[in-house]
């Protein structure tokens, strides 16, 4: 049953990805990107990573879609036609094929998927799973690892999120506000 779910979800993911590349209407592309995130969230749920699935559904399928739509309102929703069509692009095809082959070759060195003897399950994971309840007293191990054992990492991530807002404010905020100086009353009357 789980295998069947995996196959269906992965097939839908692949189909969505192909659609994302081929469709030129950016409105449809944004919707497909949201669907892609929702399918990924389903895949994470199958893998028992509900915290990740929750984040993916809320951020990827929810807020990102809204932000993309906000960006589309500024740039228009038709993608420009590629300048060179009809000819076979040999160099890009070669780059993609070689990179893909290298990645597939790299996976051969990975430990078997889902094996309990994998190194990733035997460094600190045992300690987290066995001692969380005594040391932290929190049933959700993910929260304990995120906020306590790995508190430094989460603080760094919070700072990165903050930096994202600073970046957007620098890129979009300053110029718009200066230009808005005279136009502000106009936009207010427009809302009446």
């Amino acid at each position: 049953m789980e295998t069947a779910t995996d196959i269906v979800l992965l097939a839908l993911l692949a189909a969505t990805a192909v659609g994302l590349v081929r469709i030129r209407n950016l409105f449809a592309v944004v919707m497909l990107a949201g669907i892609y995130s929702l399918l990924s969230a389903g895949l994470f749920t199958v893998l028992d990573a509900v915290d990740v699935a929750f984040t993916e559904a809320a951020v990827g399928a929810g807020i990102s879609t809204v932000l993309f739509l906000g960006a589309l309102a500024l740039v228009g929703h038709r993608e420009k036609k590629p300048t060179r069509t009809g000819r076979m692009q040999v160099l890009p095809l070669a780059v993609v094929l070689i990179t893909g082959a290298a990645l597939v070759y790299g996976t051969m060195d990975l430990p078997p998927f889902g094996d309990a003897a994998n190194p990733v399950h035997h460094r600190v994971a045992d300690h987290y799973l066995e001692e969380t309840y005594h040391e932290i007293g929190v049933p959700n191990v993910v929260t304990a690892v995120l906020a306590s054992y790995r508190g430094y990492d989460t603080m760094g991530e919070t700072t990165v999120v903050f930096a994202a807002a600073v970046g957007v404010m620098l890129l979009l905020g300053g110029g718009a506000r200066r230009r808005r100086g005279g136009a502000a009353p106009a936009s207010e009357s427009e809302s009446e």
Binding site: G70, L74, A165
Partner: peptide, 23 residues
Amino acid sequence: VLITVFGVMATIFYHLAGRGRSE
């Protein structure tokens, strides 16, 4: 984390949603 994520997402959304209409 909650306060930062809320503030950041709202800031980005305000900037994207508010930019088009001032021009």
